[in-house]
Design a protein around this nucleic acid. Sequence first.
DNA 1: GAGCAGGTTTCCT
DNA 2: AGGAAACCTGCT
Length: 354
Amino acid sequence: MNPDSWSAWQPLPLAGPAPEPAVLAETLDGGQAFRWNRIEGRAEAVLQPPSIPGRAATPLAAAIKVSGADRNPRPTSLDVVYRGQWSDCLAEIRLESDRIEWRAPAAIETRVAAAIGPYFAAGHDFHALADGLPWRSDAHLAACLQAFPGLRLLRQPFGETLLGFLCSATKQIVQIKQMLALLAERHGAPVATELKTEARGQKPDRICLSPSSVLCPPPSAALPTWEALAALPEPELRKCLLGFRAKFIHGTAQFLAAHPGWLEETEHLPYAAAKERLCSLPGVGEKIADCVLLFGAGRLEAFPVDVWILRTMTERYGLHGWKPAHVAHFGRTHFGPLAGLAQQYLFAYERRQS
DNA sequence: GAGCAGGTTTCCT
DNA sequence: AGGAAACCTGCT
């Protein structure tokens, strides 16, 4: 077996409807997670355009599609591949017409196979869950649900989610991704060193980051553990573009190092208790705590209020002049125990508008 | 070159 | 309690 190779593509069975490309993009790269990047479509994908049911691909149509793909970077569904990482896993995801497929470096395939289902909360049918939201009496919510069919919440590793959102204060997604990539590259453990061999020997995939990116090589290191972060002096952290967040991350790392097991206990506490504990960490307020619990602990009652949600609730729900804390309370009572799921749809919708 | 960005903390009234 | 200002830094 060649350790440099990738496993075969295999289906990722997710409960609920398959997302369309834009919805998959929103799920992986829309602010829940910061470690997914769209990579260039592969030759194999371009040469095998999907046969769309009901629209048989004539040779001419196929030829047009292929030549069009050559000139035009706009991807067809099979061209779209995302590469992402979490804990000590690295995987690629692509969208078939009716399902999601994944693959991993062959050397870590077993590990990824065991972890990818939980990461995607594969057993949760979010579409069915969303039916329990008050969309029947809330026209805007109904529009948001309809606009993003197949949108999912991820269930990321708790500690990594905390790190990601500690980086998020007044930063855009691209910049957060840069910080985390830098942290991983400089202070994280390599995930699949075999890949580096492959990347050197063959043509590496291009990483697509919106602005001219700091990140040319595809990331292949895990994020640093909190233990590793605790061993770093704060100036070292500042070198990773963290700015004033470095102090918070340093402080949190010191606290966690002094309280073994604290993070894992927090992860399994009920929502209110977990949130209270998270908010006691330096740099963690209500918003970040809710994000960590929603995206890193599966607490669907968490209702993070960021500027997008604030805008939504102000403009579309008429809550002019409300403070974030009041908006959060309104959201939890109006949307109920799945408020966090509603939040994700509202968030995606609002972002698309601008 | 000034202003701003998916937030929290601190310092005010 | 509630409302500014400060905190870093890279990008437009």
